[in-house]
Amino acid sequence: MKDLGLLKYFLGVEVAKSPAGIFLCQRKYALDIISEVGLLGSKPMETPLEQNHNLGLAKGQFLDNPDRYRRLVGRLIYLCFTRPELSYSVHVLSQFMQQPRAEHWTAALRVVRYLKGNPGQGIVLDKDCDMRLSGWCDADWAACPLTRRSLTGWIIFFGHSPVSWKTKKQQTVSRSSAEAEYRSMANTTCELKWLKGILTSLGITHPMPTVISCAMK
């Protein structure tokens, strides 16, 4: 073993330290994705996915080379390590890995064009931390047009720093939007309890109450 100095780059993640904290991004990795699909000269998109999309009901032709789609979505999944705003888009695209259609490939390219607008965006781990966990969650009732299952999304902060985020389908069908929101809060609570257990094992006490905020409609 030998000391390689301060951490600057590890497994595609770029690390920049400052008196304010630590900044994590995957700029080089994002640029590699953009270059691989040939969109370096394309116009950036403002959003990663079209609003009110119907990708679950797509009827276009199946892709002749689905491996290319699977590789792109797989790389986008790893990019979510420092890009929480991509969680929903990548979750949707990853549902069609077995038999992707032309519409799915177009949607994946839109995500890449969104990356081109700011490939160096990442997350900041703030130095000033009050050691308090807090979570934000939301649910999209009956978001899946095929199974009618709702979608849960959450992001959890430790102080002012994001430490956990995810978008996933709920395991059961909710009969109302309120039920979907409560299931979303239940999933977020499980994640918070798991993170609190990790802090305890590291010797960090967390006596303050944990706050969960939910966008109830």
Rank of each mutant, 00 (worst) to 15 (best):
A139L: 14
L40P: 13
L7I: 15
R83T: 01
D32H: 13
L57R: 10
W141D: 00
C214N: 04
I77S: 00
V73R: 04
T189K: 06
L72K: 03
C190D: 12
L109G: 07
P162M: 14
S150E: 07
V90Q: 04
D130I: 11
L115I: 05
H104T: 06
S87W: 00
M185Q: 10
I212M: 06
R70N: 08
L79Y: 00
D3V: 03
K8R: 15
L109T: 05
V15L: 14
G159D: 10
D3S: 09
N118E: 09
G56H: 09
I198A: 12
F23P: 11
R148D: 05
S174K: 09
M131W: 14
L151G: 03
G41R: 14
V37F: 10
Q26G: 08
N52D: 08
A180L: 07
P48W: 10
S134K: 13
L199P: 05
C129P: 13
G21F: 15
T200H: 09
I33R: 05
C144T: 04
K116P: 04
P66R: 05
R27S: 05
T167Q: 09
G153P: 06
K17C: 09
E46W: 03
P19F: 11
D138W: 00
K17D: 08
Y9T: 02
R148S: 09
P66I: 02
P119D: 06
E36V: 09
T189H: 03
Y78S: 07
Q61A: 04
G153A: 10
T106G: 08
R183T: 08
A186Q: 03
T152K: 12
F10V: 09
L115M: 10
R101E: 07
E14K: 12
W194M: 07
L6F: 02
W141A: 02
K166R: 13
P209V: 03
L192D: 08
E179R: 13
P207H: 01
C137S: 12
P162F: 13
G159S: 12
R75G: 05
W141L: 01
K43N: 10
L125D: 04
Q51D: 04
S150V: 04
L4E: 10
I77V: 04
P19L: 13
A139K: 15
C190W: 14
M45T: 04
E85L: 02
R68H: 06
G135C: 11
P207V: 01
P209Q: 04
T167I: 08
D67K: 12
P48S: 08
C144L: 08
M45W: 00
I77T: 00
S87D: 00
L24A: 11
W165Q: 02
L125S: 02
S164Q: 11
K127T: 10
L24H: 11
R175I: 06
Q99H: 09
R83L: 05
Y69Q: 03
V111A: 05
Y182R: 06
V90N: 01
T47G: 02
S184D: 02
L72R: 03
R27T: 03
L63C: 00
L192M: 11
T106E: 11
V73A: 01
I198F: 15
E181F: 05
K43F: 03
W136I: 09
S164W: 08
T210C: 08
L49T: 02
G60C: 03
I198R: 14
S89H: 01
I212N: 02
G74E: 05
L31E: 15
